[in-house]
Computed example of a mutant assay.
Amino acid sequence: MFVVTGYLTINPDLRAEAEAAIAAFVPATRAEAGCIDYRMSTDVLDPTIINGVEIWEDQAAIDAHMGSAHMAEFMGAIGSCLGGEATFTSHEVSSSTKII
């Protein structure tokens, strides 16, 4: 299993456009084979930050996601909305335990 974490820094003047791009992108991603969970949400301490958490069955699912048409469309739409850094990191996880 792979967990991907990261964030997008959004230009506050383009917040509505960013939210529209995300709203179209997330359901398409959640429907992908190998996607266990996919979430994007506003950071409660900094509304210019959109945090992302993804859970994938395997690297092949991530690779397919990265090459999907809706990913290309999203990257084109979100790119103009960025106001700073965007970074995501993949973590290979061998096990997990629910703590709450």
Rank of each mutant, 00 (worst) to 15 (best):
A86G: 08
I36Y: 04
R30V: 00
T29F: 01
E19K: 13
I36L: 12
W56K: 03
T29Q: 06
R39D: 05
G34T: 05
E17K: 12
A69D: 12
R30N: 03
E85N: 12
T29K: 09
A77H: 06
A86N: 07
A28P: 00
G79P: 09
F25R: 03
I50P: 00
S41H: 09
T29A: 07
I62R: 03
A61F: 09
E32G: 01
F74R: 01
I49R: 09
A23H: 07
A20Y: 08
G34H: 05
C35Q: 08
I10Y: 03
E85C: 04
Q59Y: 10
I22P: 02
A23F: 02
A16C: 05
A18R: 03
I49C: 00
A16Q: 14
A72M: 09
C35E: 08
R39F: 01
W56D: 04
T42I: 15
E57I: 01
F74K: 01
A23M: 04
A31L: 06
L82S: 06
G83N: 13
A16W: 08
L14K: 15
D43N: 14
Y38S: 00
L8W: 14
D63V: 06
I50H: 05
P27Q: 10
G76R: 08
A72W: 05
P27H: 11
A23C: 06
I78S: 02
M75F: 09
A31N: 08
I49H: 00
G67Y: 15
E32D: 06
A33H: 11
N51K: 12
M66E: 15
P47H: 15
I22L: 12
L14N: 13
A60N: 08
V26L: 04
R39C: 02
A60C: 06
G84Y: 12
G76T: 09
D37F: 05
A18T: 05
G84S: 11
A60I: 08
A77M: 08
P47R: 14
P27Y: 12
A60D: 11
G34M: 07
A20K: 13
I50W: 13
L14G: 06
L45E: 04
D63H: 07
I36S: 05
T9L: 08
M75A: 15
T29W: 07
G83A: 13
P12S: 13
P47G: 12
M75L: 15
F25E: 03
A18L: 10
G52I: 10
N51I: 05
R39K: 02
A64E: 07
T87V: 11
L82A: 05
S80W: 10
A86H: 07
D58H: 07
G67P: 10
E73N: 10
H65R: 09
S80E: 15
N11D: 15
I10C: 00
G52A: 13
P12M: 14
D13G: 11
L45R: 14
D37C: 01
H65K: 10
A60R: 11
G34K: 08
S80Q: 15
T48I: 06
T9E: 11
M71Y: 14
I62C: 05
D58F: 02
G79W: 14
S80L: 15
A72R: 15
R39G: 02
